[in-house]
Design a protein around this nucleic acid. Structure first.
Lengths: 318, 318
DNA sequence: GTCAATTACGTTCTCCGTAAGGATG
DNA sequence: CATCCTTACGGAGAACGTAATTGAC
């Protein structure tokens, strides 16, 4: 079905060969530099000239020079070669993690410790990739994903999650935190019913932890201290001062590892915070973002499962 | 002997296919638009991705989208395609005389009549080619050629002619010009000996005609009027007024075709002015310049000989 | 006579099309 | 089950290398 005249298929190789000959004006040498036999090289130039419709060189067996048209084309050919090579280099740089950008959003609890450590590890492996981080509450994370401002978000379930591709990364267990002198401070494990009647300090209602905790603790019969704070550090300080106790997810524990505090695993399988990887629907991650995700997953407590790392295209939408 | 890793040979066809798919995100349609079978198209994209080292599309059987790397490459690919096509178009335009430039130098005698007519004819055939003309005396013509300012010159032999490629275009016969009432005005032919004792008006000594004439007329025993003029029109006026007679080469006759003047062929085979085509040594003419030369040769009196039109590379240097 | 480009020719390999296979909605 | 991408395979043509030829100095 190639009924019509086949179009001129200019290629990088041909351009390079042409410029090589334009430079050294010697078929045999130019052929060597192009890693071709001299006749093959000769044929290549001939075909180029046929396609062009005009001789590009004048040759006697002793002398090879560019024609006027050849000179003009040589200028453009050099530009084209440079542009093509730069495009290829750019593509390869992205393929080999020498170029790229990862933008992500994450809950403040993750952004304070896990993500910084992940960034540090990532940068060691891929020092030239640009990194961006937005620490936002759940809604903010989702909004950034929706707008395409970030490649992905690490966040808790939120409203309108069905608009995204989301996959559970991990289910995070909760820990009970109290002052070191608290009656429960020496316990090895805590159950929900142990909390009955305790005065509890909560995170602000806007936080995903609080939203997740709310229905459960309502049934557990804990007393609400009335204090609502936004920063984990504040929470730690309040507990250290004996003003109450709290439940916090595992990834925030770095804030509570202080002598004045006791941190005890909560045995409540039904009370875990799902940590989601959220992305735009149907949009693949960049290579750099994939690599970042890999680093993060490796760094999560209880790593080793490969399931969350299969990020190709198949997801359970939330 | 292709021992090493074959380099990435990006070609226009591949880029076009890639952009086609990036645009319509549908293998079957993109394949059709690229005039390829769908599997062949698929393979082409796969090879491109292999060379790139990174997937450019994410495909489910139902959905094809660009990856981040694909988006980046698509931008550059569009630019590359445009640049390549423009380069090809430019080359083809030169090949088909839609673009180009002819710069030439010629003696004033030729520049007044022959060249303007040649330019007019040339422009009818190739209206978009830029034309440049320098009307200079012999030395000026050669200097312009030497500096590469013009493609070629039409001039008389001059000093240091060996520096150039020169080829005789034509040997121009001389004509005797006198007033209509001059005793010789009715003659059909004039011989050199007929000029004995006549008062003659010459062109300035700097003119090639004068230089060529000088040794011959010295022997012919003519009287020098003492007038030296630079413009042919002045010469014509002086002769018309009966102040003398002159010998002029054929291509200047357009200035002397007036009722008050008689123009008579001079029978003196030894007295002809060679008209040379002079070019830089070893530099081929542009396609446009070749075409111009062809037009000029056709227009020369006594055209039809193809000898002077073979301008390839072989010349007798002067 | 030597060096250098072209032509001739046989081989290899790329690239394409047809046909079968597999996944998705 | 219909659509659409991929894999498999066989053939046509492009491109390459070796060898012979032509041409310039």
């Amino acid at each position: 079905m190639k009924s019509w005249r086949m179009a001129f298929n200019l290629s990088l190789r041909v351009l390079q060969a042409f410029v090589e000959l334009a430079d050294c004006r010697h078929f045999t040498r130019a052929a060597e530099r192009s890693h071709l036999s001299q006749p093959a090289f000769s044929q290549l130039i001939r075909r180029l000239e046929e396609d062009a419709g005009v001789p590009l060189f004048t040759r006697t067996t002793r002398n090879v020079t560019l024609t006027v048209e050849g000179e003009l084309f040589a200028e453009r050919a050099r530009r084209l070669i440079a542009d093509m090579q730069s495009s290829i280099a750019d593509l390869r740089d992205h393929a080999t993690y020498r170029k790229g950008r990862v933008a992500m959003a994450a809950l403040p609890s993750l952004s304070a410790d896990l993500i910084p450590r992940a960034f540090a590890a990532f940068r060691r492996s891929y020092p030239t990739i640009t990194l961006e981080l937005f620490d936002r509450l759940s809604d903010g994370c989702l909004e950034l994903v929706r707008r395409g401002r970030v490649d992905f978000a690490l966040t808790a379930p939120g409203p309108r999650l069905h608009e995204f591709d989301s996959a559970p990364l991990r289910s995070e267990p909760f820990y009970f935190v109290c002052g070191a002198r608290h009656p429960l401070a020496r316990r090895r494990r805590i159950r929900l019913r142990d909390l009955w009647g305790l005065e509890m300090i909560h995170m602000a209602r806007s936080s995903s932890v609080r939203q997740h905790l709310e229905p459960v603790i309502a049934k557990a019969g804990v007393l609400d201290s009335g204090i609502e704070i936004e920063q984990l550090a504040t929470l730690a300080g309040l507990i250290a001062s004996g003003l109450g106790v709290s439940l916090v997810p595992e990834l925030t524990l770095f804030q509570f590892r202080r002598r004045e505090l006791a941190v005890i695993p909560l045995e409540a399988p039904e009370l875990t915070r799902p940590l989601l990887l959220v992305r735009r629907k149907g949009v693949a991650l960049s290579r750099a973002a994939e690599a970042m995700l890999e680093v993060i997953v490796e760094m999560l407590p209880g790593a080793g499962r490969a399931s969350a790392r299969r990020t190709s295209a198949a997801q359970a939408s939330g």
